[in-house]
């Protein structure tokens, strides 16, 4: 048997073992095997070898392989988020730019430090100023803490807090806020920032304008499932007050407050009120007892012990009132934290 014939026979044998032969090839192999004991022996031996390999037991994967793979995936995901891909541009020009930048930084950094030192020495000492909060007439000013801030060059302002609208209709809600800002001519004192998941408006205006703005925004409450007001506690997180489900009239009440302490107290009161629910705290007086229809009595509002003056600016005030700042945030439900 020459080499070519041997190769042909081999291909028939392996084709037979793998079930790849057609009828004609099978007949040919059968004939060859019948007449040649070597071919028969080869075929039989290879058949047995293949059979034995097929019976080798399947080794089980080690325990915990799945968990290890998933843990590795999570680790890699975290690492890929934390470390941006290094730039592949490492040509001569890029290296030169890096070298020049590093050299410039080496020169500039000591100069900047020296300049700062000189400035500290030469600069005349500034008188220490403590920003003061808005206070009711006749009261002493108190240092600014939570809920306070200063507007540069415009005197103290009362930072009300953050009003968050969780909504499935962010577009009409955002449009309403923009319209209200434009209608009150507050474009120059309002700013807005758009994030992927939310829009944030910072509005600074007089108390009267803010009241009017909130009144204009009353329909917006219908678009939000969970309006929330947060009065930040500044450096003391314990003082942070979150009023869930705040209503427009409650918001107006907060805006009318004349000082940070009043604001804090009123916000806490509203927080308790809303947390317990109106039906829990209100007392209903039937119409036959009042003689003028059903009446709902709400718990008395808190009042600072030393307060004698009205704690709330009157609804019909004639002046524009002090400056206030309100942050309005519009979020979609899935992004709400």
């Amino acid at each position: 048997m020459n080499e070519q014939e041997r190769e042909h026979v081999d291909s028939l044998i392996h084709g037979f073992l793998d079930g790849q032969l057609n009828e004609r090839q099978q007949t040919e192999l059968k004939r060859l095997a019948q007449h040649n004991p070597f071919i028969r022996k080869d075929l039989h031996a290879l058949f047995r070898q293949k059979e034995l390999l097929g019976f080798l037991p399947i080794e089980k994967a080690p325990n915990g392989l799945k968990e290890e793979v998933l843990a590795r995936l999570e680790r890699r995901l975290i690492l890929s988020m934390e470390s941006p891909r290094p730039s592949v541009r490492t040509g001569r020009f890029v290296l030169l730019v890096r070298w020049v930048s590093a050299a410039a930084a080496m020169v500039m950094l000591p100069l900047a430090i020296l300049g700062l030192l000189v400035l500290q020495i030469v600069k005349p000492p500034e008188p220490k100023t403590v920003p003061v909060a808005l206070t009711a007439p006749g009261q002493t000013a108190e240092p600014l803490q939570a809920g306070e801030g200063t507007a540069s060059g415009e005197g103290p302002v009362l930072v009300l807090g953050t009003l968050t609208f969780l909504t499935e209709h962010p577009i009409p809600l955002n449009e309403s806020i923009k319209k209200a800002v434009v209608a009150h001519k507050l474009l120059s004192s309002a700013s807005s920032e758009r994030f992927e998941d939310r829009a944030v408006y910072r509005i600074q205006c007089s108390q009267r304008q803010m009241l009017s703005l909130i009144q204009m925004l009353r329909p917006v409450w219908e678009l939000s499932s969970k309006p929330q007001f947060v009065l930040a506690g500044g450096e003391s997180p314990a003082r942070t007050v979150v009023v869930e489900g705040i209503r427009p009239e409650q918001m107006e009440k907060l805006i009318r407050q004349s000082s940070p302490s009043r604001l804090q107290m009123t916000a806490s009161h509203l927080e308790r009120l809303n947390r317990r629910g109106l039906s829990d705290v209100a007392i209903r007086v039937p119409a036959e007892e009042t003689g003028e229809g059903e009446r709902i009595l709400l718990p008395a509002e808190p009042r600072l012990a030393w307060e004698k003056e009205p704690t709330e600016l009157p609804g019909g005030m004639t002046a524009d009132g002090p400056a206030v700042v309100l942050v309005i945030e519009v979020r979609s439900p899935s992004e709400k934290k």
């Binding site: 399947i58 080794e59 994967a61 080690p62 392989l65």
Partner: peptide, 8 residues
């Protein structure tokens, strides 16, 4: 589903 066959 595939860990044993792949490992083997």
């Amino acid at each position: 589903r595939y860990q044993d066959r792949l490992y083997n």
